[in-house]
Design a binder for these strands. Structure first.
Length: 209
DNA sequence: AAGAAGATCAAT
DNA sequence: TTGATCTTCTTG
């Protein structure tokens, strides 16, 4: 009797990121998450845009303005998803980081994905079929992926149904750095990371105020 | 108890 | 440029 094994599928899915990945400065985590795959159920997307939010020296970070988020960062391990409702309408998903050396916490906000699988679900939830627009913004990607408050405080490092994975054989993409989008303070920090030249990002580099 | 601000999006 | 819509935090 032979064991059925779909090697190509395993290869495609990659390996779930380890806690060590997130035990670094949030800015490094944000940069290195470009090219990683975000998985939720049948939906998968390549991360093409992120932003770092830092517990130290960054007044735009929720760790500065929301005591409840400070508690979350203390009570949960790295790799935990922080999902919150923005403008009463959009769910935004972050992952928790904590620098092993400095002890500083922070988050990486997922801002855009290139859809890889589960496109039918994405199209249905978004009411669109244009691939480049399915996940081209932080609110859009959560809607497309079906991520909401029920994923808040859930680990992204354990369950293959909700995780960040990387194919070790795949080379890291060329990334671009830019200012963050939509914030009213700490605007000059170059803490937005994009896959260079990718058409599916939320706002092209150079257009942030 | 009430008010303000906010890491967005799609339509006008 | 605006309206939709609601959680969190601050102020009285």
């Amino acid at each position: 009797m032979t064991v059925k094994r779909d090697v190509s599928e395993t290869f495609k899915q990659g390996k779930i990121l380890l806690p060590e990945f997130f035990e670094r400065d949030p800015v490094l985590c944000a940069r290195d998450l470009i090219g990683v795959t975000l998985v939720h159920g049948p939906c998968r997307g390549r991360v093409i845009e992120t932003e770092a939010y830092h517990g130290i020296g960054d007044p735009a970070c929720h760790l500065f303005t929301r005591p409840s988020v400070r508690s979350l960062a203390q009570e949960f391990p790295v790799g935990t998803a922080y999902v919150y409702l923005n403008y009463g309408i959009h769910w935004l998903v972050n992952v928790l980081c904590r620098d092993r050396v400095t002890g500083a916490s922070g988050f990486v906000l997922f801002r855009a994905l290139e859809p890889l699988a589960g496109m039918e679900e994405m199209e249905q939830r978004r009411g669109l079929t244009i691939k480049e627009k399915l996940c081209s913004g932080p609110g859009k990607l959560t809607q497309a992926m079906g991520i909401n408050h029920s994923q808040n405080t859930r680990s992204l490092l354990i369950d293959p149904e909700f995780c960040l994975s990387r194919n070790p054989a795949e080379p890291s993409p060329l990334t671009t750095v830019d200012r963050r989008i939509g914030i009213s303070c700490a605007k000059d920090l170059l803490w937005r990371f994009l896959e260079a030249g990718h058409p599916g990002v939320s706002v092209p580099p150079g257009r942030a105020r």
